[in-house]
Nucleic acid binder design. Structure first.
Length: 317
DNA sequence: AAGGCGGGGAG
DNA sequence: CTCCCAGCCTT
């Protein structure tokens, strides 16, 4: 539960979870749906499924007893190097390092690591450091103390260096770099793309195409759809008609009316004025990757559009 | 090496 | 709004 989730948030979930599943065997025997139910609101639901699977693995392979060697714990689903090290160092005082959000920040500042510490080069340095500072005994206590130090003193913003017991060893502090370390992760850059799908109808049927391999939604069925640059008529109309023609070989003309719907979706009430059809794909003609379908048959296809029965939406004239 | 996962909380 | 949180897994 603590993977990427704050301690305060986890507390109540944890208590409720352990009340429902007091031990590994009961968790293993539970319905997945029940497990997910108790996870609702925590996010990263993969963790819940993996915890469930881990419990089942412990029952199947470890006689229902939680393993106590690093390799076995590390091999459990959802358990990485941090989690395995934390479990065994904190509960059994095994000499295993941990590196997580708090200690990434604390250790980066202590050693004055100036690059992004979450990248692999930084991780290598930090894990090495985390291992070096472990004492022969009481590694669990040291790990625990370092996380507390990171969360309460060596905070992301405005760390309390005046109260820090290791401020004298802190490179960032000595070089006045506390505010520059750790370097923030470079953000994934996203480009907004506006797409339009066109529902082409004729004689109560609607034109769909199957997305090609390598394309998004490969293998699923979709309406003719394309990224569009323009947002307003008449340029947008030209873009859409060209996209449909290119994608399906079907020539259409869009109607004038336009209604803006909620959820950022713009719906065109299109009127089909004419066809200048490619004989292979024209009205009524179907190929392996392109069909004219009755609206009621749409619900039987694996469709790129999900969430509502598409046929209900299209029933409107 | 990069992205996806998913909420809530703080500033 | 943005940043951050006791990471892990797949591609």
């Amino acid at each position: 539960m603590l993977q990427q989730t704050q301690v305060e948030t986890v507390k109540s979930y944890y208590a409720r979870f352990l009340k429902a599943f007091p031990n590994v065997k009961q968790l293993a025997a539970a319905e997945e749906e029940k497990v997910l139910r108790l996870w609702e609101g925590l996010g990263y639901y993969r963790r819940a499924r993996q915890l469930h699977a881990a419990a089942q693995k412990i029952v199947a392979e470890h006689d229902g007893k939680f393993p106590t060697d690093f390799e076995s714990v590390f091999a459990l689903p959802g358990v990485g190097r941090y989690t395995a090290g934390a479990i065994l160092s904190l509960s059994l005082d095994q000499r295993l390092p941990i590196v997580e959000a708090n200690t990434i920040r604390l250790y980066s500042r202590l050693i004055g690591y100036r690059d992004d510490p979450t990248k692999s080069a930084g991780q290598k340095v930090l894990w090495q450091f985390a291992e070096e500072i472990l004492p022969k005994k009481n590694s669990g206590e040291l790990n625990s103390a370092m996380m507390d130090l990171g969360s309460m003193i060596c905070k992301p913003q405005d760390p309390l260096c005046g109260e820090c017991p290791v401020a004298g060893h802190c490179t960032a502090r000595l070089e006045n770099l506390v505010d520059e370390i750790p370097l923030p992760k470079q953000k994934t850059k996203y480009t907004d793309v506006t797409e339009a799908a066109v529902v082409v109808r004729s004689n109560g049927k609607v034109l769909v195409r199957r997305c090609a391999q390598g394309e998004r939604w490969a293998g699923l069925w979709d309406f003719p759809r394309a990224a569009v640059e323009s947002r307003t008529d008449p340029k947008l109309h030209r873009e859409l008609t060209a996209a449909v023609k290119k994608q399906t070989g079907v020539a259409i003309r869009l109607g004038e009316k336009m209604t803006t719907m909620r959820h950022g979706v713009t719906r065109y009430r299109i009127t089909l004025h004419c066809f200048a059809a490619n004989p292979a794909t024209g009205p009524g003609k179907s190929t392996a990757d392109q069909k004219w379908l009755k609206i009621s048959d749409l619900d039987d296809l694996p469709l790129s559009v999900t969430g509502r029965k598409i046929s209900e939406i299209l029933q409107q004239p």
